[in-house]
């Protein structure tokens, strides 16, 4: 964990209620699947946001406006300075992925799969990505995943774009392993449908985000785990669903 001051470079709406924020600052030690915790003036608790992409000196976050805190974030303009705790959580382990890992993201769960896809591709693997949304104007990052060189499928619940249905409706294909992030009902459906082992990125209301307060504890086959510190990524075999 590092406490880093970032400068906001860009903050744009890329889909309905969904914003992409690019920040300049130290990204040392950040791994795919980790999250950062933003201090916002006027809000007591920090806002945990998954890492979408990072490079030396640049951090990309994609977030959905769901409450007062994220609405405040959407109003921030270039030049704003943010106090950010970085390098939080365990992140994805790419070692067990095999040759053809499947990445399954739903809505605000899509962003962390981007840095993961980049890493898998850099390791010479051939990831395919399923991006699930409710409707067409919520869709984002399809082109960006393709530009990386990953196969990308989009599903929408109302059929207004891509495959009609849920992410699980696009999972009937061969894959060696999977990684998933999204709302809990989606994760549970993926858990039921999946035929291989895989990793799940969980979400929970957090106090601190670095393992001190026990606010986000979940039950696993390996005992009580903190989503923020021992997770957010858990192996399929750890989950008690």
């Amino acid at each position: 964990m590092l406490d880093v001051k970032f400068e906001l470079l860009e903050n744009v709406e890329i889909a309905r209620n969904t914003y992409k924020m690019v920040l300049r600052g130290d990204t040392a030690g950040i791994r795919p699947g980790q999250f950062v915790n933003l201090k916002l003036p006027g809000f007591y608790l920090r806002r945990p946001i998954s890492v979408c992409d990072f490079a030396p000196g640049a951090l990309t976050l994609i977030y959905k406006v769901v409450g007062h805190g994220t609405a405040y974030m959407a109003e921030l303009t270039p030049g704003a300075e943010l106090d950010v705790l970085t390098g939080l959580g365990n992140g994805y382990d790419t070692a067990p992925s095999g040759e053809h890992p499947l990445l399954i993201g739903g809505g605000a769960g899509v962003p962390p799969l981007f840095a993961l896809a980049k890493k898998l591709l850099a390791e010479g693997k051939k990831p395919a990505v399923i991006l699930g949304f409710n409707t067409k104007d919520e869709v984002f990052y399809e082109a960006q995943f393709r530009a990386l060189g990953a196969e990308a499928l989009v599903t929408t619940a109302d059929g207004s774009y891509g495959i009609k249905g849920f992410v699980t409706d696009a999972m009937d294909r061969p894959y060696t392993y999977f990684y998933t992030c999204g709302p809990e009902p989606m994760l549970k459906a993926v858990y039921e449908k999946s035929r291989t082992s895989g990793q799940f990125s969980l979400e929970e209301r957090m106090g601190c985000g670095f393992g001190a307060c026990m606010g986000c504890t979940c039950k696993t086959t390996g005992g009580h785990k903190r989503v923020c510190k021992d997770g957010p990524v858990f192996e399929k075999e750890e989950l008690v669903w």
Partner: peptide, 18 residues
Amino acid sequence: PPRIAETASGMLNAVGLQ
């Protein structure tokens, strides 16, 4: 869970002695 909520200038917790 949920065990945590934000408030004006503070927070609520109901960890429950984990």
